[in-house]
Amino acid sequence: MSAPAAHGSTPDYFIPQPSSWPIKGSIALFLMALGAATWINGMFPGPWALAIGLAFLVYMLFGWFGTVAGESEGGRYSGKVDVSFRWSMSWFIFSEVMFFAAFFGALYYARVFSVPWLGDLDQRLLWPDFKAQWPTAGPEIAESFTPMGPFWIPTINTALLLSSGVTLTIAHHALKDNKRGVLNLFMFLTILLGVVFLGFQAYEYAHAYSDLNLKLSTGIYGSTFFMLTGFHGFHVTVGAIMLIVVWVRCMKGHFKPDHHFAFEGAAWYWHFVDVVWLGLYIVVYWM
């Protein structure tokens, strides 16, 4: 683990050598964007470019994060670098909060403005029978559907995610106390809870499509419901992958009681998806 320090690397700073990971990531994203755009328009190269790009992106992420993990275990990151990681992860989570804010904002706007406006006197001429009442699929989508209530899957999922926050904290304390057995066990439990959450969500979606006639195309209710819970589920998946990587690293003996930011960063992210879920649980399922 004695990669040579680049110029500028002092005890305080870490400046890496030139790296080919970023350009690989750029090529991957280019292929993915081109593939996705052509695919949804039914054109060549479509799914092929998307699949190749995605595979290349996974390879890049694996290699890049592998490099970082190697550097960290090689003792290349000083306390100052650690602080940089902390700042950057905080700001990254802030950017994620703002991403969700756009979709929560859309839900708020639909419920407070656009749906009531569609039911007001001006629109009566166009849509005399439309009742501006949430949940709605809008004045033109005639198919009836059943909205998704909080019982029982979302409530069980809330309990699962909240418990996973507890198990993750127990794992963190075990890491700080250097109890590696407890650490590995509770990391496993956290991931298990996350995966069960995702399983329930998949079941919930299948239930919505087959039993409730609730689809992504079910007007504004379906749009906001699936986009909000879907993006949340995607973030849970990403968080679970982070936790799995951290778990594997724990079992390989990585991290020290006083030096384990990868663990903490993944934990912050996990708590973030937890908090977003609480918002969803209240705003999407209850209200």
Binding site: A137, P139, G222
Partner: peptide
């Protein structure tokens, strides 16, 4: 491409919402 109605009044959305966001 995926049938949502965020900016489509027929589905309960609103094109003006795009402008706000």
């Amino acid at each position: 491409h995926f049938g949502t109605s965020f900016f489509n009044a027929a589905g309960g959305g609103d094109p003006v919402m795009y402008q706000h966001i």
